[in-house]
Design a protein around this nucleic acid. Structure first.
Lengths: 160, 160
DNA sequence: AGGAAGACTCTTCCTAGCGAGATAATGGCG
DNA sequence: CGCCATTATCTCGCTAGGAAGAGTCTTCCT
């Protein structure tokens, strides 16, 4: 059936590797999607919105510039504008102009936004503890961090 | 500044956990996105299209029913129809009606589709070898598989 | 000063994919 | 033999997010 194979059955090896990575894809997505679905249900937060809130609440004064936030969340400027619009409409953040550079606007958590951010953060950490860290155990948890740091370093590219 | 904390500084712990998971998210996406970008550039295949091709080429006779493919690729029926349309337009698959059950249609790799599938599979495996498996080393590679299997088992839900 | 170049945000258009409902075919049951 | 619940697929409308470019403001260079 198959005609030309230089040496051995390398198709099979390729397939095994891809299957291995497919396992990574699936494990990651199953876990993350389920967690995000729960966050969405309980707090009405899309993944990107949750991400923004988490970054803001970690930030001094719960404030960050649009560009920095978009960059950290790996969103395009256009995409980020819409996320910011949604959060603003929901009353979770507000835009504040920068006083020293009028091109810049800050995104700032509102009181309500801070509340939602804190509660969703707690919920998210709880889910991670129960459904990720506890099942894996401490050694595997640490190993996973190390692995992911390596992957990021290798594939993050020389420019990042 | 913060008023009510039941016990200790649990905010910080929560944040640490979420940061840890953020590392997983980032490591995964950086790696996978870069790989998929390369597949897209070299073979003009979107991630979902590539996924379908890989599943088809593994399948007996390079043939599978729409529903089974959609389920394995975790696509909705509507979403899958469009992916199948794209692949059909590109001449990579064709639809074939099932003879015993006229509700069913098979997706079958065309000759061209088989060629693209094989070449993109080789390329993908090569990328994984160079940028994932080699940097991690064999023990971490095996550990990652084990970790991801655990996560899938825990979070896949009782229904899957 | 003053104008060119660059930075920040927003607007517009485009594609991917989800979800509800429409359509069609199957198979069990009266 | 015909009814109806079930299953497979497709159609349509919707939202998320990317890419390119416009508008505004700042900074640098002369």
């Amino acid at each position: 059936m198959h005609a030309e194979h230089g040496i051995g059955e390398s198709d099979h090896d390729d397939d095994e590797i891809i299957t291995w990575w497919g396992l990574v894809i699936e494990g990651y997505h199953v876990t993350n999607d389920r967690m995000m679905a729960e966050i969405a249900e309980r707090f009405d937060l899309a993944p990107s919105s949750f991400d923004i809130l988490i970054r803001l609440i970690r930030s001094p004064d719960h404030r960050m510039t649009m560009t920095k936030l978009a960059g950290e969340a790996a969103l395009s400027s256009g995409g980020f504008t819409k996320v910011a619009d949604r959060l603003t409409t929901a009353g979770l953040i507000r835009r504040e102009p920068c006083e020293t550079d009028r091109r810049v606007t800050y995104a700032v958590l509102t009181e309500h936004g801070r509340d939602i951010a804190e509660r969703s953060r707690t919920a998210c950490a709880e889910i991670l503890r129960n459904r990720v860290i506890a099942p894996l155990g401490a050694p595997a948890t640490a190993a996973l961090a190390s692995t992911m740091r390596t992957l990021r370093a290798v594939n993050g590219g020389p420019t990042e």
